[in-house]
Amino acid sequence: MPLPYKPGSHGPEIEYWQAWFRREYRAYAPPEDGYYGKDEVAAVKEMQRRLGLSQSGEFDATTASRVGYVPPAPGLRPIMFTVEGHSSNMFAGPVADTAAQLEAEGLCHHQPIGYNNGPIPFDNASGVNELARLIGSEVMDNLVPFPKGTPWALGGFSQGGIVICDFYFDYLAPGKPLEWRTPDLEGVLAYGNPGRQADSIADWARSWITQAGSHGLDPIRRFGLPGFPAKPDFWVDVYREGDIFAENTDDKSSEVKAAVYQAVARSDFFSNPFSVAAQIAILFGQPVEEVLAIVTAIVSGVAFLGDQPNPHYSPYDISGGVAWMRDRLRS
């Protein structure tokens, strides 16, 4: 759409411009509804008044040049970034398959995140750093444009869930370095997520779950814990009953599962109370029933990383997630 934007202009490019306006001139930005109407005219007149320009109310090339606005490239589409799990192929899995399907429908570009997903303990930082590098850029390595204001989406599975949670906490949350990207984040789809907030479950997956009150396995860096934000509304979690990465409680057995997780996923063997060392230190002070529960939990937790099929690794029905993300990208 060529400049000027004026009354009657509408569509994705106006939404893009409105998002840019809100980010750069929040104090008097018009609403983001994809339509250039009286609110836009008033906002642009105010901008032009402050710049000492003729107050036409049309966002023309002269106004754009003075404020550094660059229109989006023709055919600009959202980008969906996906982070798959431990030892996974970054091009395959529940979130990669979702993005690939939506890319084939012309709704997004798929940008898989390659990271060091082989080691134990996990190297989550390599995924977080790669997300930060790409999402902080205005063009992808494959030359797909990603200017400010471009809608985007995010998906993570298993270890990828850890990566996207850490990325949100450290880069996208209020006051963090890439907070300016958050207003354009259309949706986050997390499968088997250790950072799952208590009772967070996508509407289409509720029938898969019978146990209420559970949460992700991460005992320290998890949505809703002290020092961490509540899960944002644009984030949905999908898991199946028995998935110990995504479904944990607060009893003794669950504490030990969290300790195994801290060792494997966070390289944390010693901090209290969520560490293998702490649990071993108190082991012999527990009743026999508790000792058996702890041993069972340790065996379950270690076997869980490798045994397939199981509720965490078995192929997902991704149709609900595809439909949800499709609606988000079209909105």
Results as ranks from 00 to 15, higher is better:
Ala230Asn: 10
Gln211Tyr: 06
Lys231Pro: 01
Asp203Gln: 09
Leu217Arg: 07
Asp199Ser: 10
Lys231Met: 14
Asp233Glu: 08
Pro226Val: 01
Ile201Gln: 12
Val236Arg: 06
Ala230Pro: 01
Trp235Thr: 04
Phe223Gln: 04
Ile220Val: 14
Lys231Ile: 10
Trp208Tyr: 14
Arg206Asp: 02
Trp204Phe: 15
Phe223Ser: 03
Gly227Ser: 07
Arg222His: 13
Phe234Glu: 10
Pro219Glu: 01
Leu217Ala: 11
Asp199Ile: 04
Asp218Trp: 08
Gly216Lys: 09
Asp218Tyr: 10
Gly224Ala: 11
Ala230Met: 03
Gly216Tyr: 09
Asp199Met: 00
Ser200Gln: 15
Thr210Ile: 01
Ala230Asp: 13
Leu225Phe: 09
Ile209Met: 12
Trp204Leu: 14
Phe223Pro: 04
Arg222Trp: 15
Pro229Glu: 02
Lys231Phe: 02
Ser207Val: 00
Ser207Arg: 03
Ala230Arg: 11
Phe234Ser: 04
Trp204Val: 11
Val236Ile: 14
Ala202Gln: 14
Pro229His: 00
Gln197Arg: 13
Asp218Cys: 12
Pro219Ser: 09
Phe234Met: 07
Asp218Lys: 06
Gly216Val: 09
Phe228Ile: 00
Val236Trp: 03
Ser200Val: 04
Lys231Asp: 05
Ile220Gly: 09
Ser207Leu: 00
Ile220Trp: 04
Trp204Asn: 09
Gln211Asn: 03
Pro226Glu: 02
Ser207Tyr: 05
Ala198Gly: 07
Trp204Thr: 08
Thr210Arg: 03
Thr210Tyr: 00
Gln211Glu: 12
Asp199Asn: 14
Gln211Pro: 05
Leu217Pro: 05
Gln197Ala: 15
Ala205Tyr: 12
Asp203Met: 02
Gly227Thr: 06
Pro232Thr: 11
Gly213Asp: 05
Pro229Tyr: 00
Ser200Glu: 15
Ala212Arg: 13
Ala230Leu: 02
Trp208Pro: 05
Trp235Gln: 03
Asp233Ser: 13
Arg206Trp: 04
Arg222Glu: 13
Gly227Arg: 06
Asp203Phe: 05
His215Asn: 10
Ile220Asn: 13
Leu217Met: 13
Gly227Val: 04
Trp235Cys: 02
His215Met: 15
Gly227Trp: 06
Ser214Asp: 03
Ile220Gln: 12
Arg206Pro: 02
Ile209Val: 15
Ile209His: 08
Ala230Glu: 14
Trp235Ser: 02
Ile209Trp: 10
Leu225Asn: 07
Ser214Glu: 01
Trp235Val: 04
Phe234His: 08
Ala212Lys: 09
Phe234Leu: 07
Asp233Ile: 01
Pro232Trp: 10
Ile201Asn: 12
Asp218Arg: 07
Ala198Tyr: 06
Pro219Thr: 10
Pro229Leu: 01
Trp204Gln: 12
Asp233Thr: 01
Gly224Arg: 14
Ser200Asp: 15
Phe234Pro: 00
